[in-house]
Design a protein around this nucleic acid. Structure first.
Ligand SMILES: [Zn+2]
Ligand SMILES: [Zn+2]
Ligand SMILES: [Zn+2]
Ligand SMILES: [Zn+2]
Lengths: 133, 133
DNA sequence: ATATTTTTGCAACACTGTCGCAAATATCAT
DNA sequence: ATGATATTTGCGACAGTGTTGCAAAAATAT
């Protein structure tokens, strides 16, 4: 995937900031916060611009915001439109999409209508559990 | 369940604020934020006290914090220690525990260790879907 | 190249959550 | 009940996140 192509596909003006933000997001499979993006971009654009870009990319469905118990929002490229599970490591703090496994269908009680899911498993990631040994 | 008994069980000093906060939480099955508690308690105690109480009740396992994509933390009485699913209604905004259904076991990839889960389903709740008709 | 539209940076803002500290309150031991 | 001790509270200050209005800047369309 290519940052410039995505912007043109979604009819978003191709500005320097947006290209760089998207390139950072495309480069990693770990969810990033605005703050983390800002340090990676070394102040190439303003906080407000990053927030605005994250918001529009989310509404277009290019990235998605991961629900966690923390107050800082984290965003990651959406590789598949399907429901999937997120994993948060308590050791390294990284949050990523687990695309391999599929969340089993849960049957909601009568009257409830599902729109989307936000499944998060908290634990120790592969890398951190290997480093312990 | 009784607020005063809970405090004594967990060896927490029985202060007016704590009793009132717990009573509010026991009274509803909808997750509440600090802000919502404050308005319900009509300023019976300080913001900081509410935050501190929510924190200690969470660490004792009396209540739990629900992970959502929003930045405000919501807390609800923990009725069961088991994994369960939360439901957030996009219409009325309410968040509640779905204790009836059990999240099916997902098999994590090699090397990943699960500690806890945070499953959230977003959609329309029973009450709101009935009101539409 | 110019006109039009969109986006940016800045500053200000509201809000959430945390912390130190002195005063207030609760608990404990007589 | 009284006083000693331990815990909690309210207050104010603070850091951090995310949003917005607005003029300047940049991108797109003509
Ligand atoms: Zn890890
Ligand atoms: Zn994901
Ligand atoms: Zn509803
Ligand atoms: Zn719950």
């Amino acid at each position: 995937m290519n940052a410039i192509k995505i912007l043109s596909d979604y009819k978003m003006s191709r500005t320097n900031g947006r290209v760089k933000i998207l390139e950072e997001l495309l480069m990693t499979d770990v969810a990033l916060s605005e703050r983390e993006l800002q340090t990676r971009l070394e102040g190439i654009c303003d906080r407000a611009t990053i927030y605005r870009t994250l918001k529009s990319l989310t509404s277009k469905g290019v990235i998605h915001k991961i629900a966690t118990e923390s107050t800082v929002a984290k965003f990651v490229i959406k590789k598949t439109p399907d429901d999937h599970i997120h994993f948060k490591c308590t050791d390294c703090g990284r949050i990523q999409c687990l695309t391999g496994i599929v969340p089993n269908n849960v049957k909601l009680p009568e009257g409830y209508i599902k729109k989307e899911t936000n499944f998060l498993i908290i634990g120790i990631c592969k890398e951190c559990s290997e480093n312990v040994q």
